[in-house]
């Protein structure tokens, strides 16, 4: 499998892989919420680089896109909600340091040993000319059911999460009989209603 790749690609995978692990470790070393968040983002961007080296362009760019947006939003939420308010206060991402270190190291070793010892099947499949097209055909074809279930599931989770988090319901907005012409919001939105 690896032999399919050029020397450049192999080097890139090794360097970026090491970088992503290092950035992942940095998450638990740095002492500010913002730095931890953006160390995690750096780790994801290194993974993006690995995917690019594997010629998985679409997956790589989508990873960068989704993860950056996710991290940016997460940074705001963590900073607004959690223990490290203004961010420059020394803090740590580690809880139960010993236990989590053991579990983390154990999982890392198990996975690494597994990856290098398992006799992976070597298919006769040739690499596609256009991995993006192949991915699209898989998602919209043979794996459509799975993708739709996951998509709808995620969407439902987002909506129910928002519903649980907000204290205001439609009765607060439109009155007990839901007849108010305009919702009673603390900040009016942009639509004329």
């Amino acid at each position: 499998m690896l032999t399919d790749l050029s020397a450049w690609a192999v080097t890139a995978v090794v360097v970026l892989g090491a970088l992503s692990v290092a950035a992942g470790i940095a998450v638990f070393v740095v002492d500010s919420m913002a730095r931890a968040t953006f160390a995690l983002l750096a780790s994801f961007l290194a993974v993006t680089g690995v995917l690019i080296a594997f010629d998985l362009d679409y997956l790589a760019f989508v990873t960068a896109l989704m993860m950056t947006i996710e991290m940016a939003i997460m940074a705001v939420f963590m900073i607004m909600f959690m223990m490290n308010p203004a961010g420059l206060m020394p803090m740590t991402m580690v809880h139960n340091a010993r236990g989590s270190a053991l579990v983390g190291a154990g999982a890392f070793v198990a996975l690494t040993v597994g990856i290098w010892t398992i006799d992976w099947p070597v298919g006769e499949v040739t690499r596609p000319a256009d991995s993006t097209r192949q991915l699209g055909e898989a998602i919209m074809g043979s794996h459509m059911l799975a993708m739709l279930v996951i998509g709808v599931g995620l969407f439902a989770t987002i909506i129910s999460g928002t519903l649980l988090a907000t204290a205001r319901g439609r009765y607060d907005r439109f009155g007990a009989d839901l007849r108010a012409a305009r919702p009673n919001d603390p900040v009016p939105g942009g639509l004329p209603r």
């Binding site: 362009d57 679409y58 760019f61 989508v62 950056t68 256009d130 991995s131 993006t132």
Partner: peptide
Amino acid sequence: TSADLVWFNA
């Protein structure tokens, strides 16, 4: 790349 528009977006 096979996903230039996604790159721009990313």
